[in-house]
Write a protein that binds this DNA or RNA. Structure first.
Lengths: 130, 130
DNA sequence: CCTTGCCTTGACGCTGACGACAAGGTTTAG
DNA sequence: CTAAACCTTGTCGTCAGCGTCAAGGCAAGG
């Protein structure tokens, strides 16, 4: 399988695949003419990468999962390093959820205040009383 | 008040203030020698900007609030345009919260699966059974 | 006069995950 | 022979909000 076919089957672009390779995540063979050649295993690797990126992982976070797949496991998340990353990411998400919830609360408060103190004199009027 | 003092009083940098100016958010006077001169009102403007950016607003989102302050209002969020942005941002945050919650759920599921199917054979062993 | 410490504009760097384009090699089909 | 449709490497652009020099002007103190 060449890079174009892999890109299509993985639902991504050739540019992306070369990018992953440049960052050490995908290792294709090379045919005599220098073309990248991929097998089915690499397809699963790419799909794992995509799935994790979609969830908000960075490329570095993805590495353990790829290594786990390469080690012959059916799933990329059953290895200790993957579990560590999963835990860390879960904690990060929890953190972010907290902050986002606080922000939401502040926005609601602000919005309430804004509506209570509505002013239409915003466009181009005098600063104080008319 | 010159730019250095404003930066310190607003808890930011001179670079940041010039950046805001370049994007039309702050309009200082100029002294004879070309120095930027700010008054107290601009300090409040800058603080408003900083507060909103901290909450996750973009510079464009901030514009109505600045205009609202400039129109002479005690608060930047009492103007119609500001309220619109507040509503939009609140909706965005709600949206993001939903997605983040879904992600969190997926991470928990994945983590559970990972722990249930723990494998230590990830480092550098043979693919299948020993 | 010289240093110190402000200020000015201008321009490049950074982060992340690519998109887009350039310039060229290869293989196949007509 | 040539056009089409692949592939290669390399480089620049993108988004946001600045950080970080660089090169130089202005004001005040010793």
């Amino acid at each position: 399988m060449l890079i174009g076919e892999l890109a299509e089957r993985a639902g991504t672009s050739t540019r992306t695949l070369r990018y992953y390779e440049a960052h050490g995540l995908v290792r294709p063979q090379r045919s005599a003419n220098g073309y990248r050649v991929y097998d089915e295993a690499e397809l699963r690797v790419v799909r794992e990468i995509r799935a994790l990126l979609d969830v908000g992982f960075g490329l570095d976070d993805v590495r353990p999962f790829v290594a786990c797949l390469r080690a012959g496991n059916a799933s990329g998340d059953v290895c200790p390093d993957s579990v560590l990353v999963l835990r860390r990411k879960l904690a990060e998400v929890d953190d972010y959820l907290d902050r986002l919830t606080a922000v939401r609360q502040q926005l609601r408060t602000q919005l309430t205040h804004a509506i209570a103190n509505r002013e239409e004199t915003c466009s181009r009027r005098r600063p104080s009383a008319p």
